[in-house]
Design a protein around this nucleic acid. Sequence first.
DNA 1: TTTTGTTTAAAACGAACGTTTTATAAAAAA
DNA 2: TTTTTTATAAAACGTTCGTTTTAAACAAAA
Lengths: 208, 208
Amino acid sequence: MTSKITTKVKILNAAEALFANSGFAETSMREITAKAGVNLASVNYHFGSKKDLIKAVVDRYLERFVPLLLEKIETLEKCNKNYSVSELFECFKSPLLALNSINKDGSVFFLKLIGRGYVDFQGHLRRFITEKYGESLQVIQQCFHKTMPQLTPSEVFWRLHFTIGTSVFTLAASEALIDISRSDFDLEMTPEKIVDQLLPYLAAGFAS
Amino acid sequence: MTSKITTKVKILNAAEALFANSGFAETSMREITAKAGVNLASVNYHFGSKKDLIKAVVDRYLERFVPLLLEKIETLEKCNKNYSVSELFECFKSPLLALNSINKDGSVFFLKLIGRGYVDFQGHLRRFITEKYGESLQVIQQCFHKTMPQLTPSEVFWRLHFTIGTSVFTLAASEALIDISRSDFDLEMTPEKIVDQLLPYLAAGFAS
DNA sequence: TTTTGTTTAAAACGAACGTTTTATAAAAAA
DNA sequence: TTTTTTATAAAACGTTCGTTTTAAACAAAA
């Protein structure tokens, strides 16, 4: 028997696409439930409020992503005591791609949502993330510090967030940028091709 | 006689701060007019609509910034035929700081607004900018290409937008990041200090 | 089968939104 | 001064928002 798609999951799938592409405030409950093909009231019934729905949408990805990433980093540390920045960057790749099993375009959605979480929605989402995943994030940060021990922890922090910023902004604005690229260079870009150009840029910046 | 602050300017000043820090959709007309100390209807009277107000807020900065930047680049081209990437980056500094004469924190507001313009507000703002400043932006792009002629125009385009992305995201999320930096490292950061760390990062990435 | 709890459906709620209208005041032009 | 334009003020407009209520359908347990 093929597992039934529950109302909850229908809502999550519809909401994440709209949130990622249009933003939290710009997306209404009615748009979400219409796209999901469910009743308007079901969001409040299953999630409580729009605020909690936003958290649930992001958390579905984080719950998958963070453990996979920590796992990858752990095996890297075991195999190779003196790993490099780019090896550490590599650890992000497969956990990110794993998100596409939750949803086609899941990895793109995830990065877009993270980007929105920083700038939209006041601090709600960020506070939720740091509460639930703060320890894991600090572990990751320390791993980056190991690759560049000459930096202060604060410098590592800022370079990491420059990196995150470049990634999530590029993805968040990817539709606009792909548009421009098509009209200016007659070049059809995809998120994958963008990432290929992005990675060396990021590595060079972080190791600067 | 001290020049009178018109209602129009009061609205622009109030709106830009709210737009930059909270976003376009999240900021209501009533918040704007309350902060400006003017009547609710005056926004529609002077600007037509909220959409047009958003354009006016951003354009006040662009009208100052773009000519100053083009001027700086022009003199660089005259003085030095073979200028470098970092020399070109330098050209952005003083035009950016000149925005602080429009408004204390003007340069930070400007970058935050550009960042929001990419991801919020569908494509309205971006379309407006490319219509009015598209030619200037292409000139700038060609100058960057001169510093790295081995790249294709498309590659220049993407690296430039990675750079923009890093900048505007960092500024847009600067409050959140400054918060974290304070609690994690007991370090009080300012936008200026952030920019000092950001510039070498950007230069390394672009020239990668 | 009856009962109980869970999920969906439809309708309505009050609040907040951008905008418009109407009226009044101030300034400029005649 | 009178007339005409320009600007501000107050109130109301119709919509849309997130949420709640009420009722019906469905499932599980007794």
